[in-house]
Design a protein around this nucleic acid. Sequence first.
DNA 1: AAATATTTTTAGATTAATCTAAAAATGGTA
DNA 2: TACCATTTTTAGATTAATCTAAAAATATTT
Lengths: 218, 218
Amino acid sequence: MLSFAEENYLKAIYHLSEQSGDSVSTNAIAEILNTKAASVTDMIKRLSGKGILSYQKYKGVNVSESGRKAALQVIRKHRLWETFLVEKLKFNWDEVHDVAEQLEHIKSPLLIKRMDEFLGYPKYDPHGDPIPDEHGEFKAKPQVAISECEVNRSGIVVSVKDDSPEFLRYLDKIGAYLGAKVKVLDKVDFDGSMEIQIDNKKIVFISREVSENIWIAD
Amino acid sequence: MLSFAEENYLKAIYHLSEQSGDSVSTNAIAEILNTKAASVTDMIKRLSGKGILSYQKYKGVNVSESGRKAALQVIRKHRLWETFLVEKLKFNWDEVHDVAEQLEHIKSPLLIKRMDEFLGYPKYDPHGDPIPDEHGEFKAKPQVAISECEVNRSGIVVSVKDDSPEFLRYLDKIGAYLGAKVKVLDKVDFDGSMEIQIDNKKIVFISREVSENIWIAD
DNA sequence: AAATATTTTTAGATTAATCTAAAAATGGTA
DNA sequence: TACCATTTTTAGATTAATCTAAAAATATTT
Ligand SMILES: [Mn+2]
Ligand SMILES: [Mn+2]
Ligand SMILES: [Mn+2]
Ligand SMILES: [Mn+2]
């Protein structure tokens, strides 16, 4: 049984290794978890001892198969809780992440089974991220970041890659909800910023940082 | 902000002081929390330092006004979660306590507000215990333990005082749900055991320990 | 390749929460 | 009142999780 802290490390390391496709460095983990490299070294030793990570001094860590399974179960819980909060308790999508960070550590297989059932076996969370099933299986919708799109390309927002309230409230403000139609009107090659049209109406100018975090599909 | 352990101590001490109406002893706390007296001494010092308890060496502890408020908020969360699990997720009443012990420590005022709303502002939990409102106000139904009833007295089960799965499953087996009608048919003075009729049908023989934990009202 | 910079690990402390064993206080009984 | 049993506290350890500062390993740049 993993502690809260162990689960948080595991989840962060899993996400980092998915992103980079490579082994994960001590500093990268420390930065994401707002902690110190020394603390990370201690913890990855412990998780290696439990067979959750494989680790050689100075070489970074990799998530083992059992670690991957455990990580996906925590992620499953996080995303099911976020879905519950939005669908049933009328939370806004920017209000759910921090609460889900707590709820994801509740240990009760029955609770998760019943919650999944109660929600109608949702496949995606309020930010468009896929919810792994009880075996850890999931499928992300085919999608592309707006930042990668050519001028005149349009599509439906299916996922947003930043969970922070600040970003999500900005999306609310410009109307870029999941399901909204987005069309690229113009692109500034110099800094990657662009002009987009939302739902055939509003025209807004967004920075590269924003366009990298909004993903669309046809 | 109280830690999980601090909240658990506070809740236990609050319940003990309500029961006895007096200051609470170190040993009583240790027994209820399955811990050692030495650990209790450490913790009550800490909670006194935070103004949650008042404490003098060797004299036992009392819950302060701010402690009482905090305890009632934890109890509120525990009972709301139990209600949610039974009403919405179809848990049986014997399956909820351990999960609620975890969920009661989640910190999110909005979550509790919305959960209360979602459940329709319930006044009692699945075991008949009153749910304090956001100000800590609550009212238990007038009620009496079957063990205190005379022969021929009858009433409706409104509350059960033991949360353990073993006890609750036994009540399921004999049909003594909340809302069931119970009539005392016979009473053995020697050991307090009694014969009761449930819902005008089944006749069962129950021990004193059981009769003390089933409470009825007219 | 040597010097320098960066990253990572180790050493040593700290805090919360727990324990065992021993000492101190309390309360009842001879 | 003095002794004894019980309760409570203290002393000293332990484990998880964290930190700072210093040492060691690795990577980069002259
Ligand atoms: Mn999230
Ligand atoms: Mn999400
Ligand atoms: Mn309970
Ligand atoms: Mn209850």
